[in-house]
């Protein structure tokens, strides 16, 4: 796992979460910007998942492989599902759904880092 990429993903996801909360607070529905940002986040998470899988295939990484794979899969699944679920709601609560995902991702990536470093 790559520290800088993981850190970047955490920060980016938090920015998306805060921007979504702001959108909700301003009583606006989902905009293109949020969707594109979510797409970029998803690409980053896919890249990270690729690195994790490659490392595991090469026999590197932590002993707790199963949990790591679980979190990796979770991070990849959440943004698209959130986008789907958020776009369906054309009110201020659409972006609020994105905010939930934006806060879940940092938690999960953080746990992945801990497991990777053998602290989990």
């Amino acid at each position: 796992m790559i520290g800088p990429l993981a850190t970047g993903l955490i920060v980016f996801a938090l920015v998306i979460a805060l921007a979504s909360l702001l959108t909700t607070a301003l009583n606006k529905s989902m905009g293109t910007v949020l969707l594109v940002a979510l797409g970029v986040l998803e690409i980053g998470l896919l890249v990270q998942a690729g690195f994790v899988v490659a490392a595991l295939a090469a026999g590197e990484g932590p002993t707790d492989t199963a949990t790591l794979i679980g979190y990796t899969a979770g991070t990849v699944v959440i943004p698209p599902v959130a986008a789907f679920w958020g776009v369906g709601e054309r009110s201020r609560w659409g972006p609020a759904v994105i905010a939930v995902a934006g806060f879940a991702i940092p938690g999960m990536v953080g746990r992945m880092l801990q497991i990777w470093q053998g602290m989990g």
């Binding site: 899969a73 939930v100 999960m108």
Partner: peptide, 20 residues
């Protein structure tokens, strides 16, 4: 619908996290 969407999203995340 409405705020309920957010509730569903949170429950979804928890179902995924706790389930896995």
């Amino acid at each position: 619908g409405g705020p309920g969407r957010v509730l569903v999203a949170v429950y979804g995340v928890f179902a995924l996290a706790a389930g896995a």
